[in-house]
Design a protein around this nucleic acid. Sequence first.
DNA 1: GATATTAGAGACTCTTAATGTCTTTAATAT
DNA 2: ATATTAAAGACATTAAGAGTCTCTAATATC
Lengths: 137, 137
Amino acid sequence: MKYSNATNYALHTMIHLMLQRESTVGVQELAEMQHLSPTYLSKILTKLTKAGLIESTPGAKGGYKISRTKDEISFLDVIHAIEGDTNLFDCSIHHEGCLIENVMRQAEENMKEELASKLLIDIAKEAEAKRETGKLS
Amino acid sequence: MKYSNATNYALHTMIHLMLQRESTVGVQELAEMQHLSPTYLSKILTKLTKAGLIESTPGAKGGYKISRTKDEISFLDVIHAIEGDTNLFDCSIHHEGCLIENVMRQAEENMKEELASKLLIDIAKEAEAKRETGKLS
DNA sequence: GATATTAGAGACTCTTAATGTCTTTAATAT
DNA sequence: ATATTAAAGACATTAAGAGTCTCTAATATC
């Protein structure tokens, strides 16, 4: 019962791309930064690309950059891109209208609302400010 | 990224025990009801017992019954008993004060607050009422 | 056009956690 | 003493996540 590591890597990568000045960053560099193998991170980046959160250009001088919609990207967007559209809880006994499932779903909804209201850009700026005051993010 | 089936079984079992008039119910009966093997459900029940949510008596005429605190048992109590004290999200990169982790933890907290505020007894009563109006739970 | 570079796709392995079974032991009522 | 029931623990099975490797496709540069 945990979010996957991939979601963590994805979130950190997104923040990094947001703080990036250069137009594109290759998977090589992104992978090194997080001590991951490029091929593994590549799969994560592909998911982010398909979700429209980042843009990729193949070929020499290619790489990834944050999407134009960068000021509107929420935590939930990233989670959704990686984890897919899943619920934390499925009753699996009752096929519909399970009272227990209803309660669990409502609670999950509260969490998701919070995650939808949190924008990556705000955290990115916060991280930048923190870094400038000497503390490494 | 899902709550375990065990949590679902545990919640349903708790509701059932709350609606139970007879003093104790054996694992045999509880297992049949949910189409589970008795030994498997037994492990779940042991966790609930250790958490103090139900009480068990071994031997002939033994079985399980809901704890005396039954009016105060929340969804979160059951989840905690089965899943343990875990977080949905661990940064695993940064050792402390990760901004991303902070956001994720806060959102999770919202969910848990909701789950702590929902009492099983209310759902049990609702299920009972629903059953009496002809609809099976 | 040839070459170097980079993303993407897919098959594959490894590891871990959940799921579930089986057997034995301990406790209790009759 | 016996039947019944919970508890414990070893064990097997399954499913999902994590991660690697290889090959293909696209693009810039020369």
